[in-house]
Write a protein that binds this DNA or RNA. Sequence first.
RNA 1: GGCCCCAUCGUCUAGCCCGGCCUAGGACACCAGGUUUUCAUCCUGGCGACAGGGGUUCGAAUCCCCUUGGGGUCACCA
Length: 496
Amino acid sequence: MKTVRVRFAPSPTGRLHIGGARTALFNWAYARRLGGKFILRIEDTDLERSKLEHERAILEGLSLLGLDWDEGPDVGGPFAPYRQTERLERHRAYAAKLLDTGAAYACFCSSERLEALREGQSARKEKPAYDRKCASLTAEEVAARRGAGEKPVVRFRVPEGTTRFIDHVRDEVAFENKEVDDWIMVRADGMPIYNFVVVCDDIDMGITHVFRGEEHLVNTPKQVLLYEALGATAPEFGHLPLMLGTDGKKLSKRTGDTALQDYLERGYPKAAIVNFLCLQGWALNGTTEIFSIEELVANFDIKDVTKAGAIFDIDKFQWMSGEYIRKYSVDELADLCTPYIVRAGLASEAQLAERRSWYLEVVRGEQERIRTFAELPARIAFLFAEDGAVPYEAEALKNARKQAAGLATLADYRTWLAEALAQGKSTAELRDATKAWVTARGIKMPVLFQPLRCSLTGQPGGPDLFDLIRLLGGDHALARIDAGLQRLSAPDGSPT
RNA sequence: GGCCCCAUCGUCUAGCCCGGCCUAGGACACCAGGUUUUCAUCCUGGCGACAGGGGUUCGAAUCCCCUUGGGGUCACCA
């Protein structure tokens, strides 16, 4: 059994697409499961759009997800280089060989002619295809036109017949060759094109399995034909179902974030991203939703991948993210959230470090309420607000005002609390004593707690109020109650 | 439009390859209760699908065909 060699071959023309991340993940898992090699290759033959910064970002994204590669542009390997533009010599040699055997031919048709050709075809409702005008040029003609300075493209001469290949996701797929156009392998400027280089490099790098997105399914016959023309054995394929937007179409910016980076910035834990990606087209056993990347590796098989496209369900993703958030220790979660708090401008990293134990309490209080790291700042912003100007959310205000006796109760409680605080009551004592105080007055808990919560936090929900009083500090809590007494009686609850 | 791929709850899926154990299981979302000082967490319950039609078979979500629907792709992009 030959060693499995799979690759992920992104083009550095933008940020890492979330679908690309899943493709990488499945390739990686397949290699790791079978003890094979996972190779990273950069497809940068599109000189216009390829950028080194994109390449760096992509590598970084993969690393963050915990995917490591055995060979690649940064780590090298036995088949270096791993950037396609650095392999031009090899590609040229293959092209020359194909030209030599007649499997490919030079084509001098201009872009303009091709465009006109296509226009005419589609106007006549014919399928757009090259008319093979240059397919029968003699060697002499080609040489003459080259000599005259004309720059031809190189086209693949598609033979007759039917092309079949193994697809591990959907069994065998077949295409009639007559449906395949005489596609361009090399541009007029000498730069080879994707469908051509990918085959050259996969051959040179000994790639045994090609798992990629379903949008490449129609490219496959072109490539398989090329393997045959080159006398090479085609690898086995596996076309992964597309990740769809809520409109049911290929995930695009129209319907949601498409870049891995977007989700990282939105504060989804990496492990949650990996876990969720697994579920788009694959299932561990149908009942286990939460599992680790190690479990993926131990159980992954390309044959178990679903055939149908999967709509990216952000609701489920957020739920899963929350599950991961709750699994962290408070300490870890605090560290993970820190950048988001800093970015929101609530506090600097140094300030949070200074008040580490306070910060940990804050995080502990919100851990079961947030689903992403990025949700924390908005939830705790009230802690950093001016006592007299805590923003009141409409819902909080409504809840507070629903209590007819709320204001009077809060006023009385304010006096009682000041006294209790002065006595140095602990949080637990304060909590118990307050409940006793409420009970003694013969009123329901919310009568006090709603206006109190609104005054203190301005939010309709949140952690235990006595934990909050400790976090705020007694003086601040009292100041906020004083402000609340005023603001709750004002028509719009605005700070005075 | 041609070609190709696909088709189980609203969504992600298990089951399908090797028909019976499926009165189709799980999860998210949603709804209703419970717990709670609120929100959240947590717990309980509910809603909810084999696209349609033909076959094959004692028996089909599972096999075959057709229809319908959806998607992908038709570049000197990848």
